[in-house]
Write a protein that binds this DNA or RNA. Sequence first.
RNA 1: UGGGCUAUGGCCAAGUGGUUAAGGCAUCGGACUUUGACUCCGAGAUCGGUAGUUCAAAUCUACCUAGCCCAGCCA
Length: 544
Amino acid sequence: MEITSNFIKTIMEEDLNSGKVDTIITRFPPEPNAYLHIGHARAIITNFELAKHFGGKTNLRFDDTNPVKEDSSFVEAIKKDIEWLGYTPAKVLFGSDYFEDTYELAVKLVKKGLAYVCDLNAEEMKEYRGTLTTPGKESPYRNRSIEDNLRLFGEMKNGKYKDGKKTLRAKIDMSSPNMNMRDPVIYRIIHIEHHNTGNKWCIYPMYDFAHPLQDAFEGVTHSLCSLEYDDHRVLYDWFVEKCEMEHVPHQYEFGRLNITNTIMSKRYLKQLVDENMVRGYDDPRMPTLAGLRRRGYTKDSIINFVLSTGLSRINSTVSNEMLETSLRNDINHKVKRVNAVIDPIKVIVTNYPEDKIEWIEVEYNNDNETLGKRNIAFGRNLYIEREDFLEEKPNKKWKRLSLGLEVRLMHAYFIKCNDVIYNEDGSVKELHCTYDELTKSGSGFDERKPNGNIHFVEATTAIPAKINLFEPLLMDSDAKKDLFSRLNPNSWQTFNGFVEPSLKDTKSLERFQFIRKGYFSTDYDSNKGNYIFNRIVELKSSFN
RNA sequence: UGGGCUAUGGCCAAGUGGUUAAGGCAUCGGACUUUGACUCCGAGAUCGGUAGUUCAAAUCUACCUAGCCCAGCCA
């Protein structure tokens, strides 16, 4: 899918046409402190697709300026996710690669009288900052001499001071209506080992200072970020200008992508994992890219989904059905359509020979003959879906099996239900049916119309399998309630079902349509002794 | 009168003064169907409000209203 028209694409076109830039360079700058989720996909896809569209480049740059939160385990996970999406960064970089240059530029600001060392503690600084409606006060340390500032900043760097004792601040305007301009901190002291630079540094630049400089170092032309950075842009430009950067990058903001029934905050996802409410970041119910991947979503379905939502300066919330539709559209014609019975009831075809098994050759996918054919079995003992039988036809629209009615078993014969055998608890144990030899699929029989068409598997040849069906993790969207009480107890349901024998050699992440039941993917843990399938999405249905 | 941003059908979103305001998702009709799937037809908005500018405005101006963001030594 081609990236559709949006305001950033338009800006890039104009910049290219006017000669303001001669190539497009973007970057995706995740902080390595969490797993990527479907919301991040918009940023990744937008940056890479836009650059690709204009023949430009995209860097992956880990924004690791805060060692307190960051971890190299996330670096690997993020790389893997981006690779999975099919994108190859022009360069893989770290904010920490630039610590030396960033420090030099901070010194430059000090020398220009545009930055100073401040001794205010966090609480005092908050007081001095003022509020949204009242201007702040200037720090008493604001007018230290350049010499003092240089010496003090050097001492900060050399570890003379404990965490929080001093900061380096930009000298801008304490009465600005934009809080970001009220002498923002640009360096703070943190004595913690950094995942990349170890203990080399004990001062770390703040995002607002580091980010524009990194963009400038890399020649980024269009630095894309989310809406909340809008009023940081003036600061961004201030640093680029005052540091006299050769290359001048520009920041553009776009809205975040949210999905109904999907919560994507880092805090929430972490809590789910830490408190074992899910089975890890790659739990198939998680909105993480790792989770979606395990669930069976294809990378193309995710890319097409994101592109189909467009891009604007609005934080949008699109329907989860759009994501599901994207998956269906992607694989409908690509995957085999096979028979699987998820919640089986036994059917005995009483007029079929005891020991006979009949094999019927059937296309894997009527809409894609390149997928080939396989044989499906028919015999005296079958399984059908429990929900495909009701003793009494409930209404005229019922297109399944009922007592006394006839349905076609797809690709095989009509069967008619003559008897229902119940368990002691009243549930259906088995159905006794008869088949009509004349109605064999492909025979052209058309003397009677069946009540419907249902799928089945032959009991003695079918492969037992664990089949996982998923629902949203949360059933209550009220964010004020605690997570536990909002949890959907049915978010993961496992059935002991049966799949047709052609799935014998399936490998993890192979995808299928289980006829009438949805799209499924073979789980990572599936093997020949223990087949496991995950439902990615249901088939669209106008029933119910 | 703190500052900034946004406002097109149920949800996204094209549209940048001049055809009956693209498209997707959802919805509702109908056709087809050995998946209640797929596919195919068909149906729906006058563009947050008001007042202006103009021969002509969703597109320009003013005012109003509503929503979102900002007071981390987080990003």
